[in-house]
Design a protein around this nucleic acid. Structure first.
Lengths: 149, 149
DNA sequence: GATAATATTTGCATAATGCAAGTATGAGCC
DNA sequence: GGCTCATACTTGCATTATGCAAATATTATC
C-alpha cells in the first residue's frame, strides 16, 4: 500500500460503507445520496436546487426527484424564491434538521471510536492534513471543480 | 468546517467525483463500481467472488451481475477453483490489467496536481496520516469491519 | 448416505439514473 | 410592448442497478 491513490481508495471505500451504515435514523432509512443532500442543505443558507445538485455532482433531474422523495418524508422544504420565481430554495424541516444532526452524531461517534486507536497527536495531524488536502482540492482546476466547501 | 465528519464528508465527496471522472478508459466507460472491482481483483491473488463482494460491501447477487458485465467487456476472468468447485476465482485479463493501470495512473496524476498546492512536508504528513487512519479503521470493530486492506 | 452448509446464479419486483422534451419565469433587444 | 433567447425546474421514458427469495451445484458433517 504505497501510492497515494491506493491509500485514498481504501479510505473512501471504508468511509462509504460507514455512510451506508450510519443513515438509519429513527425508522427512516436514508440512502447515502439522501443523507448527502440533508448534509449539504444544512450547511448552506437557503440554497437553490441547482446549487446543491451541482455541488453534489448529481444530474438536476435526478436531484429533483431526490428532493421530492425527501419532501415526502417530511425532511426537506422547497420554498419559491420571491426575487426569482423560477428558483426554489431548499431548507430542512424540523425532522430534517434532527435527522441531519443524528447522522452527524453517529458518524462522529464512529470516527471517535476509530480515533481511539490513534494517539492524540496522530488525530490532530490527520485532521489538519485533511483540511489542507480539501483546500488543495478546492484550488485544483483539473476536475471535481464544482464542489465548493 | 470544524468537526471530523465534516472534513471527511467533503473529502470523500470530492474523491467520489474524481472517481466518476477518471473511469473513462480507452472507449470503455467504467462505473465507479466496476472500477473498484478491477482495483480490488488486481491487488489480490486469485480471490473468490465472495471475498471481493464482501470486501466491497456489495450484495453477492449484485456482484455476480457486475462480474458478468466485466467479463462481457473482456476485462475480467472467472476460473473454477479446482480444489472447491463451488468457488470461482477472479483475475484480470490483459485488457483488464491495462484498464486498472490506466485508472491508477489517471488518479495519481490528479492527486499529484492537487499535491502541487501543498508543500512536500504537508503531502508526506497527509499520506502518513491516512495510512494510520486506515489502520485504525481496520482495528475498529464498530462497522465497516469486513473491509480488509 | 441423508442432511446441513456454502458459493454462485437467476427471477422478479423495485429503485435510481439521465437524456430529451416540456413548462414557467426572467433578460435582452428592437 | 413584444419577440427571442436563456434559465430553473419538472415529467416521460427507457435503461440500468439493486437486493431479496429461490434455484442449482458442490462440499462438509454426522
Amino acid at each position: 500500500m504505497e501510492n497515494a491513490r491506493e491509500l485514498f481508495q481504501i479510505m473512501t471505500r471504508r468511509l462509504g460503507l460507514l455512510n451506508k451504515n450510519c443513515c438509519t435514523v429513527g425508522g427512516c432509512d436514508l440512502s447515502p445520496a439522501h443523507s448527502h443532500i440533508l448534509y449539504e442543505v444544512d450547511r448552506r443558507h437557503n440554497p437553490s436546487m441547482q446549487q446543491i445538485a451541482e455541488t453534489l455532482g448529481t444530474d438536476v433531474t435526478t436531484f429533483s426527484r431526490q428532493v421530492q422523495a425527501l419532501i415526502k418524508m417530511n425532511l426537506l422544504q422547497k420554498t419559491p424564491d420571491p426575487s426569482d420565481r423560477r428558483v426554489y430554495t431548499l431548507s430542512l424541516t424540523v425532522s430534517g434538521k434532527m435527522a441531519a444532526t443524528t447522522i452527524d452524531t453517529q458518524m462522529n461517534a464512529y470516527l471517535d471510536e476509530v480515533f481511539s486507536y490513534m494517539s492524540e497527536f496522530e488525530q490532530e495531524t490527520l485532521l489538519r492534513s485533511v483540511k489542507l488536502f480539501n483546500e488543495a482540492m478546492g484550488k485544483s482546476s483539473k476536475c471535481c471543480a464544482p464542489v465548493t466547501g
